[in-house]
Design a protein around this nucleic acid. Structure first.
Length: 422
RNA sequence: GUGGCUGUAGCUCAGCAGGUAGAGCACCUGGUUGUGGUCCAGGAAGUCGCGGGUUCAAAUCCCGUCAGUCACCCCA
């Protein structure tokens, strides 16, 4: 803390031990769920042609108008660090003709996303999410499947405070009528300039405004549910029934809308109260028209993205014990250079036998090294000094009981693996 | 882009009717010529975010600036 150091760019962060292990555990828990359900792993570039997001996410969205990291390459291409995953994955599916094979195509992915926003709790310029998409079916079973998988991922992590919030925006056929009705209603209100502009560009998003005066003004606004076609209604009811049968509680929220334009019908969010103002730990919905927006064929889809950092924050807020700490089995303590050479070999053999082993280096004193052994959380300490070398012995100390026994060098590896129950 | 709050040791913070810095935890050493977790003793560690101003004297007051943080707009 003396010289001017480099710092992580605004809104970004480093995941450092031991907390970083939580991040890994969160990703793993999410990945485990989708793998079990037959999703295939897909990776796409961290940046895409800017036009993909403008067309896919929607020209009038905040993401596109003010949150994109866009730049022009040396070759003159306009590219953007991806602010979300669905449009890129759909692009990749179409480009690789995945939709020409068996449908539906089920894909999952994990990676970094970028949005140029003012940072606050749970909202950063660089964040990571795990996503899943089901392409090529309108079956409400896929909507429900995804929601159940996400909830099971949260549960697997030990989280209890997530709520599922659900809504239906209606299909491309029924939504426009609602849009118009809502717009008419909103025009009758006394709104600030920015909000009034939003009424014209995308009235649904006004429903999402958190300001109390706006929410109060929306009390008598028309509700989507009244505009759903019979087919939309059936679709939505089926999703609800499947969730109920799966034992996944949910709340209907007719005000739920999301900031991306491509959503149709099913829309959902996973919310948690321990995150401050950014309460969504994950969210998603159906996007039956997105493929066509991108110039592709009719290819309905549904998907979600789960925020890795926000999930970690939620776990911390609940006080769930942080999963996945790196545990050691053995910590080797040499006394002097000769002993160090001997134990180096033992440590290598132990690791090759699958035993998690660390060793004191730098010629620390015995006391200091034992302290390090204790802090490492290892089950056993291996102590070797000149006397032991002379007698071909390793002192194996059980750090829990404090008991210690001498074992010959040739027996150490099998002795330790046996006592660890490997 | 707008607003509130905060910047003192590795971490969490105290000190702010101005007199050139403290605690707890962590770390290192010793008490035990070869043994951790408890205890005891000692030690190392800070241009008090940065710049300017007021003053005999500024961590403390004033101005500016940067950074962090929380919130709004919106979202993972």
């Amino acid at each position: 803390m003396n010289q001017p150091l480099f710092a992580a760019p605004k809104g970004t962060f480093d995941h450092v031990p031991p907390r970083a292990e939580t991040i890994l555990a969160v990703r793993d828990a999410m990945a485990e769920q989708v793998r079990r359900a037959g999703f295939g792993y897909i990776e796409t570039p961290s940046f895409e042609e800017t036009a993909l997001f403008v067309r896919g996410v929607g020209e009038s969205t905040d993401v596109v108008t003010k949150e994109m990291y866009s730049f022009t390459t040396k070759g003159g291409d306009d590219v953007t660090l991806r602010p979300e995953g669905t449009a890129p994955v759909l692009r990749a599916a179409l480009e690789n003709n995945l939709h020409r094979g068996a449908l539906p195509v089920k894909l999952w992915y994990s990676g970094s996303y970028y949005r140029y926003e003012r940072p606050q709790k749970g909202r950063y310029r660089h964040f990571s999410q795990v996503g899943a998409e089901v392409l090529g079916t309108e079956d409400p079973a896929s909507d429900a499947e995804l929601i159940v998988l996400a909830v099971d991922a949260y549960r697997a992590l030990g989280m209890t405070g997530v709520r599922v919030v659900l809504n239906s925006l209606g299909s491309e056929e029924s939504r426009p009528a609602y849009r118009e009705a809502l717009r008419e209603y909103l025009r009758g209100l006394d709104l600030d300039e920015q909000t009034a502009a939003r009424v014209e560009a995308n009235p649904l998003r006004v429903l999402d405004d958190k300001r109390p005066e706006i929410q109060a003004a929306l009390a008598d606004a028309p509700v989507v549910a009244d505009f759903l076609s019979p087919a939309d209604r059936t679709h939505h009811d089926t999703v609800c029934e499947l969730l109920a049968e799966a034992g996944v509680p949910f709340e209907q929220d007719p005000r739920l809308v999301r900031g991306l334009d491509y959503y149709t019908r099913t829309l959902f969010e996973f919310v948690h109260d321990g995150l401050g103002s950014q309460s969504a730990v994950g969210g998603g919905g159906r996007y039956d028209g997105l493929s066509e927006l991108l110039g592709g064929p009719r290819l309905p889809g549904v998907g979600w993205a789960l925020g890795v950092e926000r999930t970690a924050l939620a776990l911390e807020a609940e006080g769930v014990p942080l999963p996945g700490q790196n545990g050691l089995d053995v910590y080797a303590v040499p006394l002097g250079g000769e002993a160090s050479r001997h134990l180096f070999g033992v440590a290598t053999e132990l690791r090759r036998a699958g035993v998690r082993t660390d060793m004191a280096v730098g010629g620390r004193g015995l006391k200091g090294a034992m302290k390090a052994a204790d802090r490492s959380g290892a089950r056993f300490a291996l102590v070797v000094g000149e006397r032991d070398i002379a007698e071909d012995e390793v002192q194996v100390k059980d750090l829990r009981s404090g008991e210690q026994e001498a074992v010959s060098f040739s027996d150490v590896v099998p002795h330790v693996t046996r006592r660890l129950g490997h």
